[in-house]
């Protein structure tokens, strides 16, 4: 958890207090993953949750990727893709999640490329001014049902 938080603080503008990280790990321990270097230091993570209440709103149970990050110095190793795949699989197998959703900054071309081209996500809608600094978010989702 501390490693995840440290990586997040080093890398991303969206940060959270420790208890937020704990809350996710304690509630859905199966679907978040970390990548470590050969010394066991954390260099990337994916933090995910399950939207369960949504059943009432007519939405099926689905996973949501809260935050994913790989240290700049550990890019081009395919870590983000591996982390995403592990999380997606756990969401489907443990929680029977029907799809997985996430938000991404509109300007983040590299990430959008990974989600759309590599992992098969599609843009569901655009959320205006989603981020603290006023940037729009793309809301993306991927079905987890067997094709």
């Amino acid at each position: 958890m501390m490693g995840m938080q440290a990586t997040n603080l080093q890398n991303l503008p969206e940060n959270y207090v420790m208890k937020f990280w704990m809350y996710h790990a304690m509630t859905w321990p199966q679907i978040s993953f970390v990548a470590e270097d050969h010394k066991g230091r954390i260099v990337g993570y994916v933090l995910a949750k399950i939207e369960e209440d949504s059943e009432e709103k007519g939405e099926p149970v689905h996973g949501h990727v809260n935050s994913i990050s790989v240290l700049r110095s550990y890019r081009r190793l395919g870590l983000a893709k591996k982390l995403m795949l592990l999380s997606q699989e756990a969401m489907a197998s443990v929680y029977k999640a029907e799809h997985v959703s996430l938000h991404v900054r509109k300007s983040n071309k590299a990430a959008i490329g990974l989600y759309r081209d590599t992992l098969g996500f599609e843009v569901a809608k655009v959320e205006k001014k989603y981020y603290g600094d006023g940037e729009d978010a793309l809301s993306m989702r991927l079905s987890l049902k067997d094709p």
């Binding site: 501390m2 938080q5 440290a6 603080l9 080093q10 503008p13 940060n15 959270y16 207090v17 420790m18």
Partner: peptide, 16 residues
């Protein structure tokens, strides 16, 4: 520019 010291303390940025 990204996160002032007080925030970094709240988030326990150990590096900082």
């Amino acid at each position: 520019a990204t996160s002032p010291g007080a925030d970094l303390e709240d988030m326990q940025s150990l590096l900082y």
